[in-house]
Amino acid sequence: MVVRGIRGATTVENNDADEILTATIDLLSEIVKNNDTDPKDIASVFITVTGDLTATFPARAIRNMEGWELVPLMCSVEIQVENSLAKCIRLMVMVNTTKEQHEIHHAYLNGATILRPDLLK
């Protein structure tokens, strides 16, 4: 078994706590579904948001999901880069798995699909 990183990103329309929390749950749920993983196999989740999202911590959403109470979570602010995608939430889910790197499925939702067009199905 090895630790693999599963990447994901999504965007929200507004700097609104409920919208941020819902988008975070949607993104994490997509990652879990696409990779057939379970919270007990998650080593940690690193979360970043762009500087324009200040209404809440996205980790709040994950902490309230059943089975995710013990998963280590950390939030940070994404570095500011000119003309970068606004109102973006990014996840790096570190999972203990027997899967090979090419078997990992990353998830990019909403406006974040422009970040990795090569991964679009």
Rank of each mutant, 00 (worst) to 15 (best):
G8Q: 13
N96V: 03
K87L: 03
I42K: 04
L85R: 04
D16K: 02
A112H: 06
V45C: 08
N15K: 03
K33Q: 15
I42E: 03
A61E: 07
T98W: 09
T97C: 04
V3H: 04
A107N: 05
Y108R: 05
S29F: 01
Y108T: 05
D118Q: 14
E13F: 08
T48I: 05
R90T: 08
C88G: 02
A61T: 05
R60M: 15
T54D: 08
E78M: 12
L120M: 06
T10V: 01
E82M: 06
V12T: 00
R116S: 13
N83T: 08
A23M: 00
A59L: 10
V3Q: 02
C75I: 13
D26L: 00
G67S: 14
Q101K: 07
E13T: 10
D16L: 01
K99R: 08
D38V: 14
D36M: 15
G67V: 15
L85Q: 07
I31E: 12
K87R: 10
N96I: 01
D26Q: 04
C75L: 14
A17E: 07
I79E: 13
Q80E: 14
H106I: 13
S44W: 01
E13D: 10
T48D: 03
G8Y: 14
N14A: 07
L28N: 06
S84N: 05
N83P: 01
A59C: 14
G111L: 13
I79K: 07
M94E: 11
G5D: 12
C88A: 09
K87D: 02
S44C: 03
L73C: 11
A59D: 08
F46Q: 08
D26R: 00
H102I: 06
A9H: 07
V93G: 06
G5W: 07
L21K: 04
I42C: 02
P117H: 03
M74N: 08
K33D: 15
K121W: 06
T11E: 00
H105E: 15
E78V: 00
C88I: 04
E78K: 06
P72M: 02
M94P: 00
Y108M: 11
E13A: 07
R116E: 11
V93I: 11
M1K: 11
A107C: 11
N110Q: 13
L27I: 05
L85P: 01
D41G: 06
N14Y: 06
R7C: 15
D118A: 10
T22P: 00
L119G: 04
V32C: 11
T50Y: 09
V71A: 05
E66M: 12
